[in-house]
Design a protein around this nucleic acid. Structure first.
Lengths: 201, 201
DNA sequence: TTGTCATCTGTCAGCCACTGCCATAAATTA
DNA sequence: TAATTTATGGCAGTGGCTGACAGATGACAA
């Protein structure tokens, strides 16, 4: 990886860090792109070369996580049932994130605090989920050998569970990937009791 | 209802009609608030007194529909199981909308065409669903007598089904409430086979 | 009918997210 | 070192959205 590439990644992370800190410190709306750019010593124009919108920088970490999830799903053995593969991939993704780079984990915690406190971001989060959902459906369809309504349904139930788990991180609770993992287990326990064996074949 | 109130409703509907026609005719982005306001002979400032944002006018009809759904759910007998109550309320809501006022139905069809063609709006649609979801959860919790994780899960599975159904309106297909109703039945058939009896109690 | 009050509307000025364009600087490659 | 590619900064402009004030319009009582 060349110098250019490394420099870009550093700028990107610096922008994310600056933005998250400003958002948490003085509020999302009260923070301008100019402030974010200034605190990284970069022109405002450059900000928009890294992120499509002000909201995107908030969702950047979550978008990365979705990519990991998709990769982990692709790594699951084909013998595994669709829903099981999804949940296992999610568990591994959360674990990887929890045990990952300290700075990286901190960014995720800040992101979760921001999104959790501000209902403004639920829409953006939904957009992310919907986007990745289509990719998940493609992979599940490949595994099942058919691209039908059931593939969509299986993935929709999975994302429903993840969503419920993330909503169930009580307000005031320290929000981080580990807590989310715990809530996810509770939700999956309910889901597994509710669903007939073999429903996702 | 006084003259003032009627005038307001007329303005609101005129703005929705003008906006939908312009969006469908020349594209969403290419249409400015000034154009919408001008074609209703109203100041741009007034537009924002009726709708919080440019996107809101697109979602206005769907927001109204969500309100109907909630009212229908409240009307379901308490003896009905939670998921059954949700699906029945949805069926009635779709039927009411299909058989409703001609102009009203036309607005809905235009809205569905807009949202279906432009992935930009899926996020907004999700936001609407998520907002109403909280109200649905409250009602389901009241019926079940407990406000626990299961209430959230039941509602999440329901909205997942609705979402899958609406995604499954094939592109190119005439999009209207009747088609959505048909797709919903297919999806609910899959859901009912997948879920154990009594899972939502 | 007339006067008073509440509410709606238009106008104006302004903020800020976001974009296209072009010149410049920096990194990559030959 | 020279040539090519690519990232950045500056600038001007569009358009969504808001606050503040003044005038118009419907609601209501005397």
């Amino acid at each position: 990886m060349g110098l250019r590439e490394r420099k870009k990644q550093r700028t990107r992370l610096a922008l994310i860090d600056a933005a998250l800190d400003l958002f948490l410190g003085q509020g999302y709306e009260a923070t301008t792109i100019d402030q974010i750019a200034a605190s990284v010593d970069v022109s405002p124009r450059t900000f928009f070369r890294y992120f499509g919108s002000k909201e995107d920088v908030v969702l950047a970490m979550h978008a990365d996580t979705q990519d990991i999830l998709l990769a982990e799903l692709a790594d699951r053995p084909d013998t595994e049932a669709p829903f099981e593969a999804l949940t296992q991939a999610m568990r591994i993704t959360l674990a990887a994130v929890t045990e990952g780079d300290e700075a990286h984990r901190e960014r995720l915690v800040k992101t979760m605090r921001l999104i959790g406190d501000n209902p403004l971001f639920t829409a953006g989060q939904m957009r992310l989920i919907t986007d990745s959902e289509q990719r998940l459906v493609a992979e599940i369809s490949r595994r099942r050998g058919v691209d039908d309504l059931r593939s969509h349904f299986v993935v929709a139930v999975f994302t429903a569970a993840v969503r419920v788990a993330s909503e169930f991180c009580l307000p005031g609770e320290v929000r981080d990937p580990a807590v989310l993992a715990a809530r996810l287990e509770e939700t999956l326990a309910v889901a597994e009791k509710a669903l007939c064996p073999g429903w996702d074949r």
